[in-house]
């Protein structure tokens, strides 16, 4: 059972994401709608993967990503941005940003999301 942490202020999106992932039986999903609290959860839960919204009030997904990478305890946790507009990051690759971050654009089908999670969690 893979443990996934979703940090996104779009609560309805998180609700369905949690329900849909968990219904497959392979995932346990925790949801957090605040960036700062989200990072505390990353350290506390040490999930198998973190899904991050880019634009949130206050600290954004980019800030959390930096914090995850810079923290010794969390630096090995894979994460992906889940966003409406990957253009904000000037992406060339469909999924990967220039610096290698993983991007998933909304709307995303659950099957597709599962495939991506499986690829990046071993």
């Amino acid at each position: 059972m893979k443990r996934i942490l979703v940090i996104d202020d779009e609560k309805d999106f998180c609700f369905f994401l949690k329900q849909n992932l968990e219904s497959s039986g392979d995932f346990a999903v925790e949801v957090c709608s605040n960036a700062l609290e989200g990072f505390t959860q990353v350290r506390k839960l040490h999930p198998d993967m973190v899904l991050l919204d880019v634009r949130m009030p206050g600290m954004g997904g980019g800030d959390i990503a930096t914090a995850i990478k810079e923290n010794q305890e969390t630096k090995d946790i894979p994460f992906a941005f889940i966003t409406a507009l990957k253009e904000q990051f000037n992406l060339k690759n469909k999924e990967l940003s220039v610096s290698g971050e993983l991007f998933i654009t909304k709307p995303v089908k659950i099957k597709e999301l599962v495939r991506i999670i499986d690829t990046y969690t071993t």
């Binding site: 329900q19 409406a84 507009l85 253009e87």
Partner: peptide
Amino acid sequence: SSGIAHEVKNPLGIILGGVEFLRN
């Protein structure tokens, strides 16, 4: 369009999530 895209793609994400939820 990038403004619209952001505002539209978020709800689309929710609708798609909702559809998959209801299907289950």
